[in-house]
Design a protein around this nucleic acid. Sequence first.
DNA 1: ACCTCCGGGACTGCCCGTTTAT
DNA 2: ATAAACGGGCAGTCCCGGAGGT
Lengths: 197, 197, 197, 197
Amino acid sequence: MQERSQKTRSQIQRAALKLFAKNGYDATGVAEVCKAAGVSKGSFYHHYDAKQDVFLDLLETWVAGLEAELGEMMAASKNVPEAILTIAGHTKKIFRDSDGTFHIFLEFWSRASRDPVVWKKTIAPYERFLALFEQVIQKGVDEGSLKPVDARFVSRVLVSLALGVVAQGVFMPKGGAWDVLARDAVDFFLRGILKER
Amino acid sequence: MQERSQKTRSQIQRAALKLFAKNGYDATGVAEVCKAAGVSKGSFYHHYDAKQDVFLDLLETWVAGLEAELGEMMAASKNVPEAILTIAGHTKKIFRDSDGTFHIFLEFWSRASRDPVVWKKTIAPYERFLALFEQVIQKGVDEGSLKPVDARFVSRVLVSLALGVVAQGVFMPKGGAWDVLARDAVDFFLRGILKER
Amino acid sequence: MQERSQKTRSQIQRAALKLFAKNGYDATGVAEVCKAAGVSKGSFYHHYDAKQDVFLDLLETWVAGLEAELGEMMAASKNVPEAILTIAGHTKKIFRDSDGTFHIFLEFWSRASRDPVVWKKTIAPYERFLALFEQVIQKGVDEGSLKPVDARFVSRVLVSLALGVVAQGVFMPKGGAWDVLARDAVDFFLRGILKER
Amino acid sequence: MQERSQKTRSQIQRAALKLFAKNGYDATGVAEVCKAAGVSKGSFYHHYDAKQDVFLDLLETWVAGLEAELGEMMAASKNVPEAILTIAGHTKKIFRDSDGTFHIFLEFWSRASRDPVVWKKTIAPYERFLALFEQVIQKGVDEGSLKPVDARFVSRVLVSLALGVVAQGVFMPKGGAWDVLARDAVDFFLRGILKER
DNA sequence: ACCTCCGGGACTGCCCGTTTAT
DNA sequence: ATAAACGGGCAGTCCCGGAGGT
């Protein structure tokens, strides 16, 4: 039965996620993860070939979750402006869920620019996301809810804006109401490209 | 004579900067830095008490340079909108100068959220920068070149936007014309708050 | 049914023999052997209590085979000198059969001087072999085909000679015609103790 | 001053020699060697890049010593037969000196057939030794102290004989008077090719 | 003051032979 | 007969201190 195996795996994942987020990937030892997960090193290396693999596993899970949520939010929206605002408002959940655990985002980012494997696993969904967002904007233009703007340009601006806010949120967790800023900023920007009627 | 000392220090800095940027702080060993700098480990520890100190040294230099450039650019501008555009256009130089060396930016960021010392050395200038930018926007409102917007909010949006673009530029060095995007995005945004005449 | 069991065992033996010979006992992991044999680790430890046991198994098989061949060769010979030459010529087969697999011989030897268990399993047949050889020489003296030499001394010399050649053959597999040397050397030596008529 | 360094090195060598001989190369840990030598791991890896390097160092020293002794013995002999007997008698010293430490010989041998680096460091002196011995025999023929035998063949036989005896001595340290056997065997063999007068 | 060699020892990721639960 | 778990052990690296020389 694979139940036991699955349980062990998720324990490792949970422990690794927490520790990587708190102390960083490099500073976190395999032994540490094992202890926190309550498994032996042998068990760890039975499930993962290397420390790096856990990281990649975490990354994949994270990316998959993000894309799933994104899809849901867009499907649940009536029109484009509403979808964008919903997504923007979603950062609130992100910040709330992660009691500092969101540092892992920075870790992903940080390693992606160094490690080719990580990079590949990150760049692909990132580009998918970018393309998808561009389509959304274009759709808004087509459906007449947005002004006839350059979809590619506008989508990139919006993504940059959101990314910038999130990045600052990671940097200064208790600095300010980043979720509010994210929402308001997107709202503010959106008003500029909304089709007046 | 302190000349030799200075030279050694700067050699260490140069080597450390390059290696930290290329391989990351953790992955870069003191021995590696020493070899690249052409100095002995003893010499290294004569100049710096710890590996961390080199990092802080680098960070300080970087922050100081950034602030200096920022000051120059603002002093050289006639009015607020022009200043903002000048700064936005400056990202071009940033991306050009750093042939990947700009990864160090991510390294600073990454460690700031972990290491209290680094955090302090980063957060202070960051907040200064934020405040300064808010003042700039306010000045624009006061001088009548900008609409009567909420300076605090607008400044944060602009900073987030810029940060988001730069972050993506670090992530995907050859991905796209980030410098152009930075300029255009700010320009686009600026137009929305420019006082029409 | 024990058929399957037997098959598994011999698969393990074959794999272990090859790997021990190629990479050495220590450098060969149990997992490696299992993979090469196409069995699971559980299966491995079902058949053998420990890695060491496989080694001993191999050793026993090898010794038994050697003694059997020896017995055959001596039975098939008309007189003592012929028997000795036959045995000496047999090294040819040894070198041919073992395309490097003969390294296992060195492994046996090497571990025998360290591990008491291995030593015991090696020393007994070795002494049997020595004694048997001494008897052969004595028989040669008695039957009048050899000069009245000291059988104990001569047998040891012959064994040493053969052993030295084989050892070099292991050391330098493609160095020279070791099988030829073995034959010629024994032949040469034999002529010195052959009863002239 | 390099005195300290030299002392540390030789301490490491001494400890490694003893442990490698007693327990084998693989079974001996670096930490073990360090403790026995009374040095830290840092110190160990300051002097040697890897565990393997110590082994090679030991091997070189051993080979050099062997060749030196060989040279001395040959220089000190009046004619060829005497030289050969002197060398043969030298095995006595070998067995005496090494209170089991001679196991290292088997270790060298064992690894030489596996590790290309070790092999190269072993094969070269071995071939030198073989060639030199051939010359010696030839010289004996030329000077008239030996019968007109095939020098190449005879030298190989003698080397094999000696090697076989030594190998058995390693295998069964307390088995028999190997040094005596070595001497007597060579003596016996020599008589067969001595020029009668 | 500046620099070098040598040394220290804790720590790392990973692999090992083996056992338990299924 | 298997997959999962075990935990101690491995070689090698880390950052750093200290005695001594220039």
